[in-house]
Simulated assay, not measured.
Amino acid sequence: MNMALPVIKDDLSDDELDQIADKAAAASAFLKAISHEGRLMILCHLVTGEKSVTELEELLAARQAAVSQQLSRLRLEGLVVPRREGKAIYYRLADDRPKRMLETVYELFCGDES
């Protein structure tokens, strides 16, 4: 889905400018949430499916407190959803935004450099 970028022109109404500003604020919050290497790596792991906090600790070779802190931020931003099963807590992506973003980042930084 290719969407045209907004063009800010003098003839836009206040409502149109407010809508653009609201979307810019949402995009900024999203980018801040994924701007941490640990959070980005968590999202990379969750693209392949739901993982427990313990699994994420092992995959990231990180302490439980650090992983939980990053998951908390991702949950606060609405990017991941927790599920409790007994004593274990599992996380999955809340929607496809992180996956789409990771595909774009991969294309920009890891794709063919020709």
Rank of each mutant, 00 (worst) to 15 (best):
E37G: 09
E37W: 03
S52P: 06
Q69M: 12
T48E: 13
L74I: 02
P82W: 03
K51M: 10
L79D: 02
L40T: 09
E85P: 04
L71D: 05
L74C: 07
T54E: 10
M41R: 08
V81Y: 09
L76G: 05
A61F: 10
C44L: 08
E77N: 14
L59Q: 07
G49R: 03
L60M: 13
L46A: 01
L46I: 07
R39H: 12
L60Q: 10
P82K: 01
I89L: 14
E50I: 01
T48A: 15
S72C: 10
A62H: 01
Q69N: 14
E50N: 07
R84V: 06
T54A: 15
C44N: 09
E50R: 05
A66S: 13
L40Y: 15
R84D: 08
I42Y: 04
L79H: 02
G49T: 00
R73W: 07
I89F: 15
H45C: 14
I42F: 13
P82N: 06
Q69P: 09
E37M: 08
G49I: 00
A62D: 04
C44D: 09
S72G: 15
L40P: 07
A65W: 04
C44E: 06
A61H: 12
L43A: 00
R83I: 01
R75E: 10
V81P: 08
R63V: 14
Q64M: 11
T48M: 00
C44A: 15
E58K: 12
L40H: 14
Q70P: 04
G49S: 05
K51R: 15
R73Q: 13
V80Y: 05
Q70V: 02
L74D: 02
